[in-house]
């Protein structure tokens, strides 16, 4: 991997963590007025960080799309697998195939889980015979917005941030690849 690629990778990684921590800090700050005086300097740092993050992100994105060697290297280093000879190249290809199937299975599970929503609510009207209800529906249906009820439990996957899904799918893909690779390699050792 070239030096500039390494710098871009580390910059992107460090700044992603930094910006996540900063987002959390801003979130906490909104709840705590005593931290308000630090807002200006933090915002300036955040601005520079975002610009650097965007530049490194765009650079990595372009390289990932157009340079196959970089893509392979990054994936191999992330999964901590090696392709030292022809057999390991074949094994890594097979592991990649198995990994795609495993990841697809998880994506299907997520897809079905995201379709369903569950709500357990209690109605305030004392005169009603049934004071509570359990609602199971499809995520694509129109959401209920009743005012005279207290929601005791609610499950709706669409409320989970998309970032969590991306990280989850990436983790599944890398873990699965690593698992299949080491399993196939061990079969011959």
């Amino acid at each position: 991997m070239k030096k500039i690629d390494k710098i871009a990778c580390y910059t992107s990684l460090v700044l992603t963590v930094f910006l996540l921590v900063l987002s959390l800090w801003f979130y906490v700050k909104d709840l705590d007025p005593t931290l308000m005086d630090q807002e200006t300097s933090i915002a300036a740092v955040a601005g520079v960080a975002v610009i650097a993050w965007l530049i490194s992100g765009i650079y990595l994105l372009v390289k990932l799309i157009y340079v196959q060697g970089f893509r392979d290297q990054l994936f191999l280093s992330l999964s901590k697998a090696s392709e030292r000879d022809e057999r390991e190249l074949i094994v890594s290809g097979e592991a990649a195939r198995k990994s795609i199937v495993t990841t697809m299975a998880f994506i299907f599970i997520i897809m079905f889980a995201s379709l369903v929503n569950v709500k357990v609510a209690k109605k305030h009207d004392e005169q009603l015979e049934k004071k509570g209800y359990v609602q199971v529906g499809l995520g694509i249906a129109k959401k209920d917005t009743l005012k005279d009820e207290t929601v005791l439990f609610k499950y709706n996957m669409s409320e989970v941030p998309s970032f969590i899904f991306v990280v989850f799918i990436l983790a599944i893909m890398l873990t699965s690849y690593r698992y299949h690779f080491s399993r196939l390699i061990k079969m011959d050792d």
Binding site: R84, D85, E86, R87, E88, I185, D188, D189
Partner: peptide, 10 residues
């Protein structure tokens, strides 16, 4: 021959 020990074993 330019391969790993594991490949020779396999």
């Amino acid at each position: 021959v330019g391969v790993t020990r594991a490949t020779i074993n396999a």
